[in-house]
Design a protein around this nucleic acid. Structure first.
Lengths: 233, 233
DNA sequence: TTAGCACAACCTGTACACAGCATGTGTTCT
DNA sequence: AGAACACATGCTGTGTACAGGTTGTGCTAA
């Protein structure tokens, strides 16, 4: 019952006075993170009854969550088979990154958000976390990338833009994480620190356009680095 | 049982050998169109049991459809109240149009689709349909606008871009249709014909970049014309 | 041995009953 | 008269049983 006792295996401890919407959001975020952090790598078959048992609810709320994940493009529900974590073909992956680059540039153009000291402090925290990252700790690296994305979302004033940026981030993040282990760790960390440094400088100048540009350049860099390890069909 | 007997009121005649997915798509498209063509204007309360009765299914598939519509931002599901067709506040409306303009420009930049003679013929058909439109026939005008959007989707090679363009089109289309009756009919038709003419010229030149630009300019024109009739809070 | 087929085991899809929630309405008390 | 409250009524949320679909497996027969 208490949060002190950490279960041996994965287990969702439900808060006591939790409303229906909160429970839905909790399970959704949990499954989304498991997919994005590769706990469930692409191809994994999820069972509604198994998830229902784990989260101690019936299949009905689980189905709602899975259908939302399907809408987000993270899973594919097949009748009689199961819910399969989506993979992305190379073409769609590249197209998505190209689109994300353009969307990132728009952060500074379409009703940019307000920059506060909290944002700068968060950037500094991300830098520290990145620097103190043990070698080849891909999972924590992914978490930092997730938090950086959240920070940038917070800086995006246009609600529709923010929404679609997040949508495509979650859709391709796990694929990028998949390739992470094939890349040079030092380069990856250096690239991440460079982006954080550029973002911080842009934020200090209150230049949201520069923020969007820095993000766009970073995405381009990622795609280029991954491109080396992808063989064309 | 037979399709010959057309029911007096709206009724969905289910094809015989229809699979589950097809039925879902059919009901989804039907309700989406009813919302976008203002059969269900913003604020309308939809009842799951009523819809289930009309489409002759149980609440379960209807709920799936309504939740997908909620993901698309067309309805808002409130516990204990009902499913309410969404309205859009002015700020979000403008932000969405700004984003749509930028996305339209990307049609010609991110892996543009192939132009065929069918596209030109479809454009010509849309021109004829627009010209033969009776005055103040907003509903058929909306249908033409829908078909034009479908045509442009078909010309968008990048799957992610196409997806998000459609998403935001469906989200704001009905709001634009709402203001339609307040605008000058002749101007509206002229604007539509101008866009079709520009698109046709761009397609003949095989210039997808010009297609995107024409669409973007058209969206800007729409927003400007509507802006005159909107009072700032 | 191997190709073919029937079946069992698992999955999601559907229908329905019931619980929980929001809201309008009628009553009652001041 | 007016305000406050209890309740009836409608809605969506949830749980559960069953129907329909898919796939792997093992038996059977050539």
């Amino acid at each position: 019952m208490s949060d002190l006792a950490e279960p041996a295996v994965k287990q969702a401890s439900a808060p006591k006075g939790e409303t229906g919407v909160e429970r839905f959001e909790r399970i959704h975020a949990e499954l989304r993170d498991r997919i994005c952090l590769l706990t469930y790598p692409p191809g994994t078959v999820l069972s509604e009854v198994a998830l229902a048992k784990e989260f101690d609810v019936s299949r009905t709320p689980i189905r709602r969550v899975l259908h939302k994940l399907e809408f987000m493009g993270l899973v594919e529900i097949k009748n009689g088979v199961g819910t399969i974590v989506s993979d992305i073909d190379l073409m769609t992956f590249k197209e998505t990154y190209s689109l994300r680059m353009r969307l990132a540039e728009l952060i500074g153009e379409l009703s940019p958000g307000r920059i506060t000291v909290e944002h700068l402090e968060e950037i500094d925290r991300l830098v520290e976390r990145t620097k103190s990252l043990p070698r080849e700790n891909f999972r924590d690296y992914a978490r930092i990338a997730n938090d950086l994305q959240t920070l940038l979302s917070d800086l995006t004033g246009s609600a529709p833009l923010r929404e679609v940026i997040e949508l495509f981030y979650f859709r391709v993040a796990r694929i990028w994480f998949t390739y992470l282990s094939q890349l040079d760790w030092e380069d990856t960390v250096a690239s991440q620190l460079a982006e954080l440094s550029e973002l911080r400088a842009a934020l200090e100048c209150n230049d949201m356009r520069a923020v969007g540009q820095a993000r766009s350049v970073h995405l381009h860099r990622i795609l280029t680095r991954i491109g080396r390890f992808i063989v064309e069909p």
